[in-house]
Amino acid sequence: MTTETVSTDVRDYLAAVMRELADLPPAERDDLLDDLDDHLHEVLAEGEGSLEQRLGPPAMYAAELRTSAGLASSTTGGKSTAGLLHRAIDAMSSSTIWRRTAEHPSTRATLDFLPQLRPAWWILRAWLAVEFIAAVQHPRYNYGFRDELGLIPRVAGVRYLAVLLLVIAVPISIAIGRRSHHGGARLLVLAGNVLAVAMIVPAVIALRSTTYVESQVAPQDGLFFNGHPITNIYPYDANGHPLDHVRLFDSDGQPLTPLPNMTVLDGASQGGVAFAPSAAAVTAFPDEQRNDFPKPNVVTVYSDNGAPTTAVLPRPSFTVAPLPSASASPTPTPSASPSSTP
């Protein structure tokens, strides 16, 4: 056994014991560990096995030291979760595979780089904390994550409150991150971090929720513009003159057809009289002219006895300014005709 491996073993064991006693006041801990370095060297020098074989796991050594020295068992040692966690980490870090992986250059490089990401995590967890507050706030607003979360979440239904909370939470998170913690405070920070990580999933879902909502809209028949149904189209030429009998096709040669434009001026339905679209309204849209714009504005008026009367309303009166470049050519010819006619 070389001197180097001896000192590595001693250093590892010493560090593990020290970690177990992290809750003690530094002076007390140093006093307790004063002789340990010599002790470990001496045990190894006897050449009767590794430190673990001779003295047991570091956690056990620390617990024994603590009890026999008459010190209260710690929150990090004994049966607590953190103690178990430490023991599990100790067991894991002593296995060969783990050690080889940990000592591989690429692992080293990655691990060396991770600390540089800590400030980013501090800011991220501050944001997650605000998302968490937004998620568990007043039940009146707590319909679900989707309504309240988002890049800037809503707190008590108000977004600027979240901005205010972020302004407070970010410096706090950074201050917590820059300081080292012991004992209970360390557990508290650990619990907070776990909570923040758990918050990532609902927060990310909330960020994507707009997309989900849009994709859930069922396709509808007819023509739509920005979600509103189009019942008629009024074409104008470049000079601002209204055009009649303009036929519209899509890129596949399919005629563009709105839903039948039937305004029903209902004088009788309040009396419970059933009505049907009049024949005139239907015949106003023969199949071959379905994409002929503008459509006639057919209005069916029901009299009190239920008899329908059909009328065609005049074209809505609005003026369209001519295009600035089109004043020279009053009748622009279409550059392309539809490739197929129905």
Partner: peptide, 24 residues
Amino acid sequence: YGYDVVRRLREAGLDDVGDASVYG
């Protein structure tokens, strides 16, 4: 010193004495 005490206790027949217990 610490480890000397451990050794002497063992030599005296207290084989099960723990190092950490003695130091503590």
